[in-house]
Amino acid sequence: MANTPSITEEISSNFSPTKSSTIVEVSPKLPLPTKFSIMQEDKAKRSREISINDDIPPSNLQKLNIDTVAELVGTYFLIFAGCGAALVNKVQTLTIVGIALVWGLVLMAAIYALGHISGAHFNPAVTLALAAARKFSWKLVPMYLLAQLLGATLASLTLRALFHDQGNIQATMTQYKDSTSDLEAITWEFIITFILMFNICAVATDHRANKHLTGVAIGATVLFNVIIAGPITGASMNPARSLGPAVVSGVYKNLWVFIIAPILGAMAATLVYSILRVPKPGKLEENTQSMYNELYIHPEV
């Protein structure tokens, strides 16, 4: 027991000068080495500032301008391809099935291309019906309608210039024969627009629906509507689609049918679907929501 070191001696021996050689002293005055140089750190700081600025959302006016341009471009694509197919049919027979395929496919493509920007309405009847159902802001309606009508008119002007050898573009117009009464034409346009808008409400504005196939479902709806009603009324379903060619060709016969019937059909569809709609759990439904992009919300302007 006499040779056993005490606890005090053991602790002092651990910190004796002979064993302290393993301890490395670091002067607090010496700067720690950095991974990046000063220039690299400055460049990284600037890139962080740029990324922060990129995250700043556009103003309400900028957003409205972007949406308006998207609606104009999308409506232009729709009318150019769809009405263009009717003019091509006079050169090379496409049949009603071929024309219907063009209408359905171009709408599907436009939805996927521009739906996340403006909601991809491309149709005054759709815009008015969504606003009436409080799924879209009324403040945005005038600019959307103007963009859609302008897009349809510009597309019709382009087609007249490209198919000048045909003399006119009356083949692109939505007309019905004298054997078809005004009431029958209104009924046809009301029903096919109702079907279109009902499907839009189901696949694009309902949180329970699968949004990935929205464009396919709506494009297919237009396709079979054109096959069924195209030979009878031209299957407008869209006031802009009828107004654009009418303005360019200067023929306004029965145009009121293709303005009133689609609007009434679209509004009736939103009213009927509202009965089937279930509020999203945990959240109140937004009253300025659009379509085709999981109810893209438009800010109030």
Rank of each mutant, 00 (worst) to 15 (best):
A147W: 02
I218L: 08
R160K: 13
F163V: 01
Q148Y: 10
A185E: 11
F194A: 02
V126I: 14
I191F: 14
K211T: 15
P142Q: 05
T153N: 06
L128A: 02
K135A: 05
S137Y: 09
M197T: 14
H207A: 10
A209D: 06
L107E: 09
L154G: 00
H212E: 07
D165Y: 09
T127S: 15
V102L: 06
G167Q: 04
L107S: 04
V106L: 05
G219P: 13
A185V: 08
N199L: 08
Y176P: 02
D206N: 12
W103R: 00
F194R: 07
S156D: 05
R208L: 01
W103K: 01
L183S: 11
I169K: 05
W138P: 00
T187P: 05
H116T: 09
W188N: 12
Y176S: 03
L130D: 06
L154E: 06
G230N: 07
L213Y: 14
I228S: 07
K177L: 13
H212D: 00
I117N: 09
I111P: 13
L196N: 09
V126P: 01
I186L: 15
A202Q: 15
L223F: 15
L196C: 04
K135E: 02
R134I: 01
V97C: 04
K177S: 15
T174N: 13
L114D: 06
A110L: 03
A171M: 03
F122C: 02
I232R: 10
A155G: 08
T172G: 11
F198R: 12
T172Q: 12
P124L: 13
S181C: 02
G98L: 08
I191V: 14
I191Y: 07
V203Q: 01
G119L: 04
F198D: 02
K177P: 01
L130H: 04
V141W: 09
Q148M: 11
A229S: 05
A120F: 08
K211Y: 15
L145Y: 04
F190M: 03
A152P: 01
F198P: 06
L149H: 08
G98C: 10
F136E: 06
W188P: 00
A229L: 05
V226R: 09
T172P: 03
A229D: 09
A202N: 15
I200V: 15
F198V: 13
L154D: 05
A110H: 05
V141D: 03
T187A: 14
L149P: 00
Q148R: 06
I218M: 06
Y176A: 12
H212M: 00
G219L: 11
M143F: 12
G167E: 03
Y176N: 02
R160P: 02
I99S: 01
M143I: 08
A109V: 09
T127V: 07
R208K: 04
N225P: 10
K135R: 12
Y144F: 11
V106H: 07
A110D: 14
G151Q: 07
T127Y: 10
S179C: 04
A152E: 03
T214N: 12
G98I: 12
W138T: 04
L107N: 10
W188A: 14
A204Y: 13
L183N: 08
F163R: 06
S181E: 04
S137A: 13
Y112K: 01
L223H: 08
Q170H: 13
G219D: 12
Q148F: 13
L162T: 11
K139N: 07
S181V: 09
L101F: 15
